[in-house]
């Protein structure tokens, strides 16, 4: 064996030593608890797969799963529609306007989502500015907005929007401006150049942004619990309620496993087609 072939082993061992604390941390605080949840889902209170049967077949649980997926799909769609123009302006125009927009997105991203959730509570509350405005325009009494699916969808969209913007921005920033000039010189109208060139080239950002937002959304706990509808819970809220109110650890664990499987499945599909390393642009 030549020396050049044997040398790479040393960095490998070094990498392993450097990674060791993280690996130990993950095993102790992630894999072990996860195994415990998995174990509880089939042993609590007695051994069997009955919880899974219930979670997947019981109409009430199925409703929660479908509501969660529906809300997440809605949030993801609205995020794409709002974030795309914002990211486009930020990436293409740049300069001061771009910097200010990016700053606004980042500030919103860095603000605790608990704070942002409470902000929405005030905005959408019964005596909040939106209600008063609707009253003033003749919608009296104004519709109940807080503690509905509407309020949780709005708040989740706001909370996850920066992530979508950043995923799109990362892809759009890499699009060569000369390509758009070339398209124009070749006879493409601005709209046609966008449809045929820019949009297809930015589509990977839509896919990865949507994947991230959707996956985060189906597992989101705080916001739906605080301002969502108690009758149209999302999975995480449901899991929390099972544990806190009914001490039903088995059912809660089974639901958590279902949520995990759905999440992993989405990421697996993404990885199959695009590669997980591209998820963050």
């Amino acid at each position: 064996m030549t020396p050049t072939k044997s040398t790479p082993h040393r960095p490998d061992r070094l990498a392993l030593i450097l990674l060791a604390p993280l690996l130990v941390f993950l095993v102790v605080f992630f894999l072990v608890p996860l195994g415990e949840v998995m174990w509880m889902s089939i042993t609590e209170p007695s051994f069997g797969f009955g919880h899974y049967g219930k979670v997947l077949l019981d109409p009430h649980y199925r409703r929660v799963v479908l509501d969660t997926l529906g809300t997440s799909l809605m949030v993801t769609t609205v995020c794409v529609l709002l974030a795309y123009p914002l990211a486009y302006v930020t990436a293409q125009i740049g300069g001061t306007i771009g910097a200010v927009l990016l700053m606004l997105v980042a500030m919103s991203f860095w603000t605790s989502f608990l704070v942002r959730t409470y902000a929405w509570m005030i905005i959408l509350g019964n005596r909040g500015p939106v209600s008063e405005l609707l009253k003033a325009t003749g919608w009296d009494p104004p519709p109940l907005m807080l503690f509905t699916r509407f309020s949780s969808t709005v708040a989740l969209t706001h909370i996850l929007l920066p992530i979508m913007v950043m995923a799109l921005y990362a892809v759009m920033r890499k699009i060569d401006l000369n390509i758009m000039k070339a398209a124009a010189s070749l006879g493409a109208t601005p709209f046609s150049a966008f449809r045929n060139i820019y949009f297809p080239l930015s589509a990977p950002g839509i896919v990865s942004g949507s994947t991230i937002v959707f996956v985060l959304c189906i597992g989101f706990y705080v916001t739906p619990v605080l301002i969502g509808s108690p009758r149209e819970q999302m999975i995480s809220g449901m899991i929390g309620a099972q544990i806190e109110e009914f001490l039903a650890f088995g059912e809660a664990s089974a639901m958590a496993m279902v949520l995990l499987v759905v999440t992993v499945a989405i990421l697996a599909v993404y990885h199959r087609f695009f590669g997980l390393d591209k998820l963050w642009g």
Binding site: D176, N178, I179, K181, A182, S185, G187, P190, A193, L201
Partner: peptide, 20 residues
């Protein structure tokens, strides 16, 4: 006249081919 109506071909240093 906007660029797309000028009927002028342009070749850029970095090729600017459509990668997709």
């Amino acid at each position: 006249v906007p660029p797309h109506k000028r009927n002028i071909g342009v070749v850029f240093q970095n090729y600017a081919l459509f990668p997709h």
